[in-house]
Design a protein around this nucleic acid. Structure first.
Lengths: 164, 164
DNA sequence: GAAAGCAGATTGAACTCTCAACTATTTCCC
DNA sequence: GGGAAATAGTTGAGAGTTCAATCTGCTTTC
């Protein structure tokens, strides 16, 4: 592999990257702590409950759920197993595909979510939304969307390029 | 504790939060994978090396390093232990405070960082910087700074408020 | 100048996440 | 139709993170 000259970050780019990194580290840690303390689950598990609660019949195929939560299949399997142990959801076989599993939120799981949501939303609001102007919030949405697009469309290209 | 009415997120606030969450999840996962693959360390460890490399004598007190990397003391202890096993840094006793330890980057650690940096910076550039306009980059810096400020100044207040 | 409390750092256990390997089923295609 | 390849999902091992407990040494206070 030919090593081309590294395009280092400019001073302003580095400053932005570090601010973003620092803010995100602090914020995500704070949110994880809040949820762990008040609901006994990490944020990743909370998201699983949220997605299930928002979908038809409070259920989703494992792979859909993995995509929706931006989680690996493996991570989701482990997480769902833990949540199942608590009785917050259950797995049932998929009717149309014998390989498939469908995760279904139970009433207990829904109740747990209803319980956890206010505290979590308050934390998101206090630590993030309330710190930003309306303008910044819409900027952040745009920024997030751009990054997501880049990562989604760039993956194949990137992988291929690295193999050259 | 009196439960006041939850201030749910508006549609636009929620959209922004989810875009940010999604982008960050994807981005951090991509960066972690890149570093793990090419340098054999997670991003948190990389940051430790960076901070040490930037400081006087390539060394820092453990607690300073923990603050600089926004890491818990415990996490840092474990991480430094791993990096020490590889010979990338070492711990020496602090001259002025017998409780203290100073982490020092070794030549091998510095070499590993020099090796890892180009790939990591390329990944940050490709997945984030290149996806954003110059304006968005400066917006993101501001947004990050605001969130950090909120979390730093808000912590004491928040804790106290919750105990009321 | 001793007791009490505080600060710096580490440890171990429990838990989450990643990676690679694996099973089972479906789809592709000749 | 039948074998190769792709898809769905799980599993176990190894590694990182968190939390609470602990240990040591500094500092405050009376």
């Amino acid at each position: 592999m030919v090593r081309t000259k590294t395009r280092w970050l400019s001073a302003s780019e580095q400053k932005a990257w570090r601010a973003y990194l620092e803010a995100t580290t602090l914020l995500f840690d704070a949110l994880d702590r809040q949820l762990q303390r008040d609901a006994g689950i990490p944020h990743a598990y909370y998201e699983i409950l949220v997605r299930l609660s928002e979908s038809e019949c409070r259920s989703m195929r494992m792979s859909e759920l993995a995509d929706a939560t931006r989680s690996s299949r493996s991570r989701l399997s482990h997480a769902v197993a833990r949540l199942e142990e608590r009785g917050w959801l259950k797995r049932v076989e998929c009717a149309t595909d014998k390989r498939g599993q469908v995760a279904v939120l139970t009433d207990a799981g829904y109740a747990a979510l209803v319980d956890a949501a206010p505290g979590h939303v308050e934390a998101v609001r206090r630590h993030m939304i309330d710190q930003l102007s309306a303008e910044q919030i819409s900027q952040l949405e745009q920024i997030g969307a751009s990054i997501v697009t880049g990562l989604e469309t760039g993956e194949c290209k990137a992988v291929r390029a690295e193999e050259d």
